Measured scan of single mutants.
Amino acid sequence: MQGVVKVNSALNMRSGPGSNYGVIGTLRNNDKVEIIKEVDGAYEIRFNGKVGYASKSYITIVN
């Protein structure tokens, strides 16, 4: 499943599905991501070869 990031500035990509996990990357508006699955209000995603988590509130599914 594919998604597009929709933010005003940037969205943190984290090592786990919550803000208490470390930041492993930054997503920008209109970045395209692969959605692997939904976990606790976040999506597990793949972006630029990395797998991490981002809030589903800022990712629009575009299948």
Rank of each mutant, 00 (worst) to 15 (best):
M1R: 12
M1C: 14
M1N: 08
M1D: 05
M1P: 07
M1Y: 11
M1I: 13
M1T: 11
M1L: 13
Q2S: 11
Q2P: 09
Q2G: 07
Q2Y: 15
Q2F: 15
G3W: 03
G3P: 01
G3L: 02
G3Q: 01
G3E: 01
G3C: 08
V4Y: 06
V4F: 07
V5P: 01
V5C: 05
K6G: 05
K6I: 11
K6C: 14
V7E: 03
N8Q: 12
S9Y: 11
S9N: 13
A10V: 15
A10S: 14
L11D: 02
L11Y: 03
N12S: 11
N12C: 15
N12M: 12
M13W: 06
M13Q: 02
M13L: 13
M13N: 02
R14V: 08
R14T: 13
R14H: 14
S15R: 07
S15N: 09
S15H: 04
S15M: 08
G16L: 05
P17R: 04
G18Y: 04
N20Y: 09
N20H: 14
N20D: 13
Y21L: 05
Y21C: 15
G22A: 15
G22Y: 11
G22L: 13
G22K: 14
G22S: 14
V23S: 08
V23D: 04
I24L: 07
I24G: 01
I24E: 03
G25H: 09
G25L: 07
G25S: 09
G25C: 14
G25F: 06
T26Q: 12
T26V: 15
T26N: 06
T26W: 09
T26M: 11
L27N: 00
L27G: 01
L27E: 00
L27S: 01
R28F: 12
R28T: 09
R28K: 13
R28H: 14
N30C: 12
N30D: 10
N30S: 06
D31G: 02
D31P: 01
K32Y: 12
K32P: 08
V33Q: 00
V33W: 01
E34Y: 11
E34T: 12
I35M: 01
I35L: 03
I35G: 00
I36A: 02
K37Q: 11
K37M: 09
E38C: 10
E38P: 03
E38K: 03
E38F: 05
V39F: 09
V39T: 08
D40A: 10
D40F: 10
D40P: 07
G41R: 05
G41V: 04
A42M: 15
A42D: 15
A42R: 09
A42C: 15
A42Q: 15
Y43C: 01
Y43P: 00
Y43L: 05
E44L: 15
E44T: 02
E44C: 11
I45Q: 00
I45V: 09
I45G: 00
R46G: 04
R46L: 12
F47H: 09
N48C: 11
N48M: 12
G49K: 04
G49N: 09
G49L: 03
K50R: 09
K50T: 10
K50A: 07
V51G: 04
G52S: 02
Y53W: 14
Y53D: 02
Y53A: 01
Y53L: 03
Y53S: 02
S55P: 15
S55D: 15
S55C: 14
K56N: 05
K56G: 04
K56S: 10
K56R: 06
S57I: 14
S57N: 13
S57F: 13
Y58V: 08
Y58G: 14
Y58A: 12
I59P: 01
I59C: 02
I59E: 01
T60D: 12
T60Y: 13
T60S: 11
T60A: 11
I61N: 04
I61F: 05
V62W: 06
N63G: 13
N63L: 12
